[in-house]
């Protein structure tokens, strides 16, 4: 009986291994690890696969969320579908959170990360950023009953942030005596503020403006924390072909007004900080961020 079990297991393992290696080489290429994916073939791989895998934070309405039919929807998802159409493939939107989106990208589970991903020098060491697709800032959403009028009022209050995002660092800078609660995703953090577990929530300004409009018990402070944030798309480090394609796509949809139309559809108004690609031909969001910072400073 034991020998039979071992034989069956061995046969099953051998069959599984054979099946894995028989898959089209495009798949095995896309599941390579963090090692540089040599650039040139990636766009072709996506086309031969017939689908582009895009990571988005589907707990971040109206950027990305699950609609009433359980399908991914939102500003990011609409852009993803537009991108897929321009490549002639299907878009496969994968749900990630702020703290696992980079590992998903580095392990090849996705080709690109959307997700309102703020471009910072530290993150640029792990991934390559496109030019920005949204410009924003850190806003503060407060419960009306919590009596918070300014950022310094946050001291002594409970502030919700999301793990792995730029919000967590922003709180420490302005209110070192605030109690910080770090949640796995934005839905949990919103839930915390709505149920009273937290007094305030620090997140992207565009996101919070939308949330404040949907909840009468919540208010958005007039102040924003820190500097402007340039949010871009991320690809694996060294993936120049896909990076160039995404950059030219972003320029195209900004120039022909498609992205503005989609933004107005989801947020109800034009963006607070409009996109302005005037710097001479940056190759990545980091160049644009650095140029903007040096011209501001």
């Amino acid at each position: 009986m034991k020998k039979l079990a071992i034989t069956v297991l061995a046969a099953a393992t051998a069959l599984t291994l054979a099946a894995c290696s028989a898959q089209p080489s495009a798949n095995s290429g896309s599941t390579n690890g963090a090692a540089s994916s040599s650039g040139t073939g990636v766009v072709a791989q996506i086309k031969s696969r017939g689908q582009i895998n895009i990571a988005d934070c589907l707990s971040f309405k109206p950027f990305g969320f699950y609609n009433s039919s359980g399908k991914p929807d939102g500003y990011d998802v609409d852009l993803a579908n537009l991108l897929a159409k321009s490549l002639g493939v299907k878009a496969n939107v994968v749900n990630v959170t702020s703290d696992n989106r980079i590992p998903y990208l580095q392990t090849g589970k996705v080709d690109a990360v959307f997700c309102n991903f703020t471009i910072t020098g530290q993150r640029a060491q792990a991934v390559d950023f496109t030019i920005p697709y949204v410009v924003s800032g850190e806003g503060v959403l407060v419960r009306k009953s919590a009596n918070i009028r300014s950022a310094s009022d946050l001291n002594g209050k409970t502030v919700a942030v999301t793990k792995g995002s730029t919000n967590a660092q922003a709180v420490q800078a302005v209110a070192p005596h605030a109690t910080v609660q770090a949640y796995n995703d934005d839905t949990s953090a919103m839930q915390a503020v709505k149920s009273g577990q937290a007094d305030a929530f620090i997140e992207d300004l565009n996101f919070l403006t939308y949330q404040a409009s949907q909840n009468t018990s919540l208010d958005l402070l007039k102040t924003t924390l820190g500097a402007k944030e340039y949010n871009g798309w991320a690809v694996q480090k060294g993936d120049k072909a896909l990076l160039d394609y995404l950059n030219s796509f972003l320029r195209k949809v900004t120039e022909n007004g498609q992205s503005l139309k989609l933004f107005k559809k989801w947020f109800g108004a034009a963006p607070l900080y409009p996109l302005n690609y005037t710097t001479s031909d940056p190759t990545s969001g980091l160049d644009l961020v650095k140029t903007a910072e040096s011209s501001n400073g």
Binding site: S98, D99, P103, A160, K163, G164, Y183, N184, A192
Partner: peptide, 23 residues
């Protein structure tokens, strides 16, 4: 309990992971 923002061991691991990217 890391899902309700308690900074116990798993929550700390998630935070360190998001800071260092050394999963």
């Amino acid at each position: 309990l890391s899902a309700i923002a308690l900074p116990e061991l798993t929550g700390v691991a998630q935070t360190v992971n998001s800071e260092t990217l050394l999963t």
